[in-house]
Design a protein around this nucleic acid. Sequence first.
DNA 1: GTCTATAGTAGGATAGAC
DNA 2: GTCTATCCTACTATAGAC
Lengths: 211, 211
Amino acid sequence: MSDTKQRLLDGALAALREHGVTGVSARTIAAAAGANQALVFYHFGSVDDLLSAACEQATRQRVDAFAERFAAVGSLRELLQVGRELHDEELAMGNVSVLAQMLAAAQSGERLAAPTAAALRMWIDEIETVLQRLLAGSPVAEVADIPGLARAVGAAFVGIELYEGVDRDGAHRALDALDQLAVLVEVVDELGPLARRALKSKIKKAATPRG
Amino acid sequence: MSDTKQRLLDGALAALREHGVTGVSARTIAAAAGANQALVFYHFGSVDDLLSAACEQATRQRVDAFAERFAAVGSLRELLQVGRELHDEELAMGNVSVLAQMLAAAQSGERLAAPTAAALRMWIDEIETVLQRLLAGSPVAEVADIPGLARAVGAAFVGIELYEGVDRDGAHRALDALDQLAVLVEVVDELGPLARRALKSKIKKAATPRG
DNA sequence: GTCTATAGTAGGATAGAC
DNA sequence: GTCTATCCTACTATAGAC
């Protein structure tokens, strides 16, 4: 990977951070990269392709950087805690959630949809692995589709990142509330075997998955 | 409200739907409204101000249209069900979640932040009212901050809307999983008084809210 | 691979006729 | 209130020198 190409990838993220998805352009990216505007097209063909590549690479790196922490997660609260660390680090790095910006742009920019979905998928896969491990043998696994839950968690996290951008206190309060809710789920999971069996039978009766 | 002004408000939503936040402009809005481009500035001063006004008005209308349905909600599953109806209706109307697009734009467009936050707040307030009613006297209310939960739910919903734009099947699966999870929460809520008291005491011990 | 220059397009915003 | 016309800026993308 040539030095310039990498600088453009980094510049794309920087431009996304600074100007947002509405203000990103070959020119703002090149300026952030300290490179010439024409090189965007020489190396990547189009701005969208550069953004896609940058999102893919950045997400890959962030996911790898958090791999050990995900592997060490032993409870839902700890999973949420890792989520908050991720959230805080992104914030400290000045990231306005690159992924969320890309998702918004991808709603109508069809060419961005697949690369963006792939990037979000990386996070979802990590979450799915953790949930699978945490919830094995729990009543939750009896009723809920784990891959579906992982998708819900990933998407919800993106939503909260966006929310934080317009209401920091509100987002903080939301995360605290989820933390408290996680306590409840864990307590249920730690119920004695008798209570759990009763719970399971109630769940079986109540569970009528909607089509 | 003059006819043209209203057509511009509708046109702003249409342009947001069709071209996304990256493709919206005074020209695309005016085209969608069947009006002259200069009228955007005459009536609203700037594109951002028009977008803010359109988002505010549209959200107000949608919230009002769902008021009775929110009032009729009697369980968490029903709340989720109303959320899905909302989601489906937005989709059928061709809305790519106007609010999510605005949130993305608001991350770096400072002038959009406050109006967008206010619009999201309308949904959050509705959710908060419902949760307050549903969870009164439940173990959940003992541990979790209801306004915080409402914020988490609202933000999560926005995230899922965005996710749907790039992976329809994945979003559907996520919502199904949440539906199944809601069953679990309800079952907990319907536990006998004895089990509930045990739960509460466990919760009290476990609950150590993070600062 | 990197630069300058430029063509062609679209955008925000205003002035002024009607 | 609405329109035309216009200014100026910024954008994508390419051509061609180096």
